[in-house]
């Protein structure tokens, strides 16, 4: 009896809280879209400038195949570039941290390399690697690795030297200190960079597709633009935005799981 009573009493309180938290973003998104829809209709904004959200949604629903295959292609390019960029970024940070001479020699070069706009390189990359998925991944890689390197180095510098001395007093070798102290200590900083790199890698992939490809979100954007298919442009923007947010959330989720201790040192 009391069990039923307790659950009857607590159920509404708990469930509204949970359910609200879950649907809150959807609720606000729906509200926002409704406002835009109403604005477009009310002020008679021409579709050339801003199509109605419902028209965009209808476009995606009408031809989902093109968007799904484009999305998949771009996801592959981004993921490949992002993973390669992150691994390379961390590896370079380790090299630069251990051999300061290399750091002094090559770090400025790395920074300069990043000041060259990636678009300037796009054509060359496609010439070198052909019109392949790999070529796009290379562009993604190119613009995503440096933030990872910089932040990993920053994380390494945050290590308490007394911590390293303690490890040395245990007779630890360099590799053990790297794995047990430096790498975990750099994780909070590293994840800041990974979140940034996930967005950059997506930009790289989309821009890379502009240099010639047959599928991908970048291709869809270009085609829609040439055909003055405004609804198509907006639909691709929406799909790209969802992809960007999805990638970011994945990295943020991993961060919450892995860096549970926060920035406490």
């Amino acid at each position: 009896m009391s069990g039923i009573k307790a659950s009857a009493a607590s159920l509404p309180v708990f469930s509204t809280g949970r359910v609200y938290a879950a649907i809150k973003p959807i609720l606000w998104l729906t509200l926002g879209l409704a406002v835009i829809e109403a604005t477009v209709v009310l002020f008679e904004i021409r579709p050339y400038y801003l199509p109605r959200p419902s028209a965009i949604a209808a476009n995606i629903v009408a031809t989902p195949g093109a968007y799904i295959s484009g999305l998949w292609r771009t996801v592959l390019e981004t993921a490949l570039g992002f993973v390669a960029g992150s691994v390379f970024g961390v590896a370079i940070a380790i090299v630069f941290h251990r051999w300061t001479l290399l750091r002094e020699l090559f770090f400025p070069l790395f920074v300069v390399s990043q000041t060259i706009p990636v678009i300037a390189f796009g054509a060359v990359v496609v010439l070198w690697f052909g019109n392949t998925l790999f070529a796009k991944a290379v562009i993604s890689f190119y613009i995503s690795f440096l933030p990872v390197t910089v932040n990993t180095l920053l994380g390494f510098n945050s290590v308490d030297p007394r911590q390293v001395q303690l490890m040395r007093s245990f007779g630890a070798k360099d590799g053990q200190i790297l794995r047990r102290i430096y790498l975990p200590a750099a994780l909070p900083q590293l994840f800041v960079a990974l979140k940034l790199a996930s967005s950059l890698a997506l930009v790289g992939a989309i821009v890379g597709e502009w240099f010639g490809d047959t599928t991908g979100l970048g291709v869809l954007l270009l085609q829609a633009m040439y055909n003055e298919n405004v609804v198509g442009i907006w639909a691709t923007i929406v799909v790209s935005a969802c992809l960007g947010m999805g990638l970011y959330s994945l990295v943020a989720l991993a961060e919450r799981r892995i860096v549970f201790w926060g920035n406490e040192q």
């Binding site: 308490d160 007394r162 490890m167 630890a172 047990r180 549970f260 201790w261």
Partner: peptide, 23 residues
């Protein structure tokens, strides 16, 4: 050393065995 220098990402047991792991 003066400060405990525990690693925030390791729990009590895993902090305690740090030196043994190094060995």
């Amino acid at each position: 050393p003066q400060r405990d220098l525990l690693l925030p990402w390791r729990n009590v047991i895993d902090n305690a065995i740090l030196a043994l792991e190094v060995e």
